[in-house]
Design a protein around this nucleic acid. Structure first.
Lengths: 159, 159
DNA sequence: TTATTATTGACGAATATTGACCTTAAGCTT
DNA sequence: AAGCTTAAGGTCAATATTCGTCAATAATAA
């Protein structure tokens, strides 16, 4: 993995580590100069590597004093939990399973009541759309549930 | 964040804090002198930072004894917050607007970073499904985003 | 070979700063 | 009371500085 993208990705991760902060402010122009690439390469790295699904939030501002800010959440979650989630959820879950899983996670204090609420609302909305608007089969809907649930939980649990 | 605008913004926020009042009266001329800038810079700070979207309203008066008054809205009633959400989101929002709204809500401590992350992931998933799997039009997708976002935020904010 | 991922560059959009010119209100002066 | 003066604040356009998007192309993986 000696791709430019990989190198820049590592660099940003290192900045996050080294600063021991929750976030870093980057200058797109400076980064591009430093790594001898076009500025839009930085956008590519951000878009492909520092996604919400991987536990990052990115803010940016154009114009004078512009910046790209990368925020990293959940810095210290054991990897074991990630695998656990895959197992737990599998490829298909119905809403009852989901509620059971969420109740469990909340009881173990891995998610808050509000986070659980968000996840339930998101899943229910998806169910509603899939059923009423798109006429998807029950199996298809449960597959989508599984995928959504995994993404949501991974974003919280992985760093 | 060493921009003039940022510095002035912080100063005004601090005045609000320190006064522990709901509002502060500013003198545009004095502020401009203090920070060594043209008076219209103050207008820019007000227009771009102390917006209703961020929970402020501003009154002003010209002429002798003129002033700029910055009022911080406190939205402690669930009712008020809910209405605010409706307005903010409307019937259609693109992902860029969503990110702005979420950043503002987090700044105002109405949601946490993790909650923001969950919402971003849910919206992105919906976008992905709508685009790649269901081939929905951009407008339809933005409508669905608005509906999803409103439901998610209402679930949090009504509590 | 085909599909995915990475790289590049042209063009566009947003933000910050400044200054010239406009509008409004209060207090005098007549 | 009307008009003038002075002291605010408002608007708008020009400019500079960043970042973002999109599509074409190249490289790599399946």
């Amino acid at each position: 993995m000696a791709s430019l993208t990989g190198i820049i990705e590592k660099h940003i991760e290192e900045l996050l580590e080294r600063a021991n902060e929750e976030s870093v402010f980057l200058s797109r122009k400076d980064l591009a100069e430093r790594f001898g690439c076009v500025p839009s390469q930085i956008n590519y790295v951000i878009r492909s590597r520092f996604t919400p699904e991987r536990g990052y939030i990115v803010e940016s501002q154009r114009g004078g004093h512009g910046y790209i800010r990368v925020i990293r959440l959940c810095m210290d979650m054991p990897e074991a939990r990630a695998n656990h989630i895959e197992e737990l959820v599998g490829d298909s879950v119905n809403e009852q399973d989901i509620r059971r899983i969420l109740a469990n996670l909340q009881r173990r204090k891995l998610i808050t009541a509000r986070e659980r609420l968000l996840i339930e609302v998101a899943v229910r909305f998806q169910e509603e759309i899939g059923r009423d608007l798109l006429d998807l089969s029950p199996y298809k809907r449960d597959s989508l549930h599984a995928e959504l649930l995994k993404r949501l939980l991974r974003s919280l649990v992985l760093g």
